[in-house]
């Protein structure tokens, strides 16, 4: 899932300066699972903002709504009927959701309430970790199912740098991804795979080639 975290209250308040009525929109997708932008967080943020602005002598009116997903025009359109008298939308979605709202409502100012962090998973309650760099050319078959592109601080593709010690990366407190790769390859008796020199990666398949699109003609519905 996409993991995100709340921006500081100060930053959110600053982005709402001059606004008196705000539509606070949560998302029932990934950010709901990582406890950053679901219905509950949306309610808490809206009431916190109202109290804070009350104390500042500049009361704020909020309308709350949590969509099933903000990255889907069908759900986003449900907000159209709520925009009457609204100065601004505050979105608790990832960057995708914020942009979808901005695209769907060209006349409305939209600001984010979260910082979008990474593609990862819940490790334990209250702990999320990054697992995929979305590089567009998966190398996991060569690295025993551990991704060096995103889990190595230098994205090295040919083994650990000289800073790996006792399983730790030189960038503390991270684990060394290459130690994990080596351990797995050893356990599975496939260390010899690591002797192959991995060539330069094609970063054009990552975001370096510009914003990406995926087209599947086979599932397109002809108009």
């Amino acid at each position: 899932m996409i993991v995100a975290e709340a921006k500081t209250l100060e930053e959110i308040l600053e982005s709402l300066q001059g606004m008196s009525k705000v539509l606070v929109v949560g998302c029932g997708g990934c950010v709901s699972v990582c406890l950053a932008g679901g219905e509950k967080e949306t309610g808490i943020l809206a009431s916190t903002l109202r109290m804070k602005r009350e104390l500042m002598g500049d009361p704020l009116e909020t309308v709350e709504e949590t969509l099933t997903r903000q990255c889907d025009p069908e759900y986003v359109q449900q907000l159209a009927k709520k925009l009457e008298g609204i100065d601004c939308i505050l979105s608790l979605a990832c960057g995708v959701g914020v942009q979808f709202l901005a695209e769907q409502f060209p006349q409305t100012w939209v600001v984010p309430a979260l910082n979008t962090l990474f593609a990862g998973a819940t490790m334990e309650h209250g702990l999320w970790e990054e697992r995929c760099g979305l590089c567009g050319e998966c190398v996991l078959a060569r690295t025993g199912g551990v991704c060096p592109v995103i889990r190595c601080a230098k994205s090295l593709l040919n083994g650990p740098c000289g800073g790996s010690q006792n399983g730790k990366c030189e960038v503390k407190p991270n684990e060394c991804a290459w130690q994990l790769i080596y351990n797995r390859m050893s356990e599975l008796g496939r260390v010899e795979l690591l002797l192959e020199v991995a060539g330069a990666k094609d970063w054009s398949k990552s975001r370096d080639g510009g914003p990406r699109k995926m087209v599947r003609e086979d599932v397109k519905i002809d108009g």
């Binding site: 650990p160 000289g162 790996s164 080596y182």
Partner: peptide, 23 residues
């Protein structure tokens, strides 16, 4: 190229040196 015999995993260090030479 450089080699660090003192970093971990130790057993991989010689293989990495070999990769550098191969390259």
């Amino acid at each position: 190229a450089v080699a660090n015999p003192f970093a971990d995993p130790f057993e991989f260090r010689v293989l990495r040196l070999e990769k550098k030479i191969r390259a």
